[in-house]
Write a protein that binds this DNA or RNA. Sequence first.
DNA 1: ACCTGAACACCGTTCAAGT
DNA 2: ACCTGAACACCGTTCAAGT
Lengths: 208, 208
Amino acid sequence: MTISNQGTEQRRYHHGNLRQVLIDAGLELLEEGNGELTLRAAAKRAGVSHTAPYNHFHGKDGLLAEIAIQGFAALEQATEHARSNAGPDAGDQLFATGLAYIRFGARRPALYRLMFGPRKTNVASEKVEAAGLAAFEVLVRVMQYGIISREFREADPYASAFTSWALVHGMTQMVLDQTGPLEAEAGDEIEKRLRTAHSTMMDGMRRR
Amino acid sequence: MTISNQGTEQRRYHHGNLRQVLIDAGLELLEEGNGELTLRAAAKRAGVSHTAPYNHFHGKDGLLAEIAIQGFAALEQATEHARSNAGPDAGDQLFATGLAYIRFGARRPALYRLMFGPRKTNVASEKVEAAGLAAFEVLVRVMQYGIISREFREADPYASAFTSWALVHGMTQMVLDQTGPLEAEAGDEIEKRLRTAHSTMMDGMRRR
DNA sequence: ACCTGAACACCGTTCAAGT
DNA sequence: ACCTGAACACCGTTCAAGT
């Protein structure tokens, strides 16, 4: 006790870090999953009884919240990666970020829906919001860069980012649903649509 | 039989038009409902056994599809009403349509989510898509009008409508979720955000 | 043609009980 | 501290049976 247990180490009992194992199981099921995530299925995949998760999460919503947080972290990473590889042009960075965003949703539809789905307001959901905000800030940085580099006209980067976020968020939703007039899984169609929207937006954002 | 039964009249058995009664019950539960719609709850409200709906719908998904169709019809009506009351300026019409759209979602969150939520692809979902397309075409008409009146520059009205639709759809989603940086239920905040986005878009759409 | 009730296989959650 | 198994109240769906 005084020797072997380092303070920051995750405690392990039967399965060692069951908490993360359950989250990973949930993410897997969501990836494979044609439908909904089930607490019992996640427990089964983790190799524990269906009541074991209650020792680590605030019921099903608690597990869902953790999964959403990790989803937002992955979204942030995907968009930031695209942004930093897009070259020095702010408009290019904005387009690359938006495209990476939509592709993230298109490839992980169930996870994406979970991230933006309804959540009972509780303590955990605040952490989800924080994770979502961190992903949002990738776009804010693009806007700030565009303004500082004098490529974009003066504006509130936060407000500009909000507009762009809403646009790609809406497009992603339309890719996931078959509702609305975007039927193609073909990435070409998505890219073409985003290109059109992006051009219109850029006309309104660029310095004249 | 030869006398009393008119061909187009809805057949009534115990409850008369149970089909529509179930749809209305579902809409009510969705409106009140803090959470999910249940087939059994809809049947209970309609005053029938929980298996009765299977005589009228393809299971729960069938009922959900019908509700979504009626939801899209209501959305179409709300946006069309706003458009036709917005005066002759195409930009004003576009803004009014978008605001009506977001408000529709904000006031019927559960119905809105159902309309755009996941649906198992089957026959019924084609009719849902058609209903969604009809609502979308309100925006297409605004774009066509703006181009014909030479207020908007030449463009594919379909593509322009798509961009606007994605934008308001994304904003609506952000109002419903608390995710993202739009916390206010106050209509003022929503209107302000839409105004910003609309101005940017209009800069890109207006004839120079 | 339309409806019911029993039955089945699920689900989330609680709780006493084990280690 | 962590896990299990029984139990409870739900859920969607099927099916034989009634009228």
